[in-house]
């Protein structure tokens, strides 16, 4: 083994990180056939590459053969089994999440956004505007917000969103309640 014969201080040229990355790819078996052939030639012909390759190979062997795993306490498995006896396996997420509902919600929101945009664009008087600066109001205070919020479409939009929000809150609270019940019954 040639541990650390090649010190990083010896050569800090610009090609150094690239050399290491390419050698690691070669050692890990991640390089292409063409790259492998090229690196092999470099290792054979270039002393610098040869030394670095041997060094990295040593580190790799050291890690592959010497890395140890820690063990938890002897009672660990027993503790886990005691703990899981209090629980039941939850049903697969797939079984209670209906993709059709998710798609339905997504389509609904996209339709709403699209409809809203079409309505807004429809309100702009294109013939009156000669330049883009005229579309943008000079003073935001001059906008009559009441004009927009008294509109039936806007009110329907806000109402539907409120209902959807309440439905989501109900789903969330229902899920929490179910989890609590499961914990008590478990």
């Amino acid at each position: 083994m040639t541990y650390f014969k090649y010190s990083p201080q010896e050569d800090s040229g610009a090609g150094q990180p690239d050399m290491e990355a390419r050698l690691w790819d070669y050692i890990d078996g991640n390089s292409s056939a063409e790259e492998r052939g090229f690196v092999e030639k470099l290792i054979e012909s270039n002393q610098q590459w040869k030394l670095r390759y041997q060094e990295l190979l040593d580190v790799n062997q050291l890690l592959a053969g010497s890395l140890e795993l820690d063990a938890p306490s002897l009672r660990f498995t027993k503790n886990v089994m005691e703990e899981i006896s209090k629980y039941t396996i939850a049903p697969a997420t797939k079984s209670y999440i209906d993709k059709k509902i998710i798609w339905g919600i997504a389509i609904f929101f996209f339709t709403m956004i699209f409809g809203f945009l079409v309505y807004m664009l429809g309100q702009i008087d294109w013939s009156a505007a000669t330049g883009s600066e005229k579309i943008i109001p000079q003073n935001l205070k001059n906008i009559e917000w009441s004009k927009y919020f008294n509109n039936t479409y806007t009110n329907i939009f806000l109402m539907v969103n409120t209902i959807l929000g309440l439905m989501l809150l109900d789903m969330y609270l229902g899920k929490k309640k179910k989890q609590l019940n499961q914990r008590h019954s478990g």
Partner: peptide, 15 residues
């Protein structure tokens, strides 16, 4: 943490 991991894995095993 390790114990918690195994409990979570057990509870979500159907996934």
């Amino acid at each position: 943490i390790a114990q918690d991991v195994f409990i979570k894995a057990y509870r979500n095993l159907a996934d």
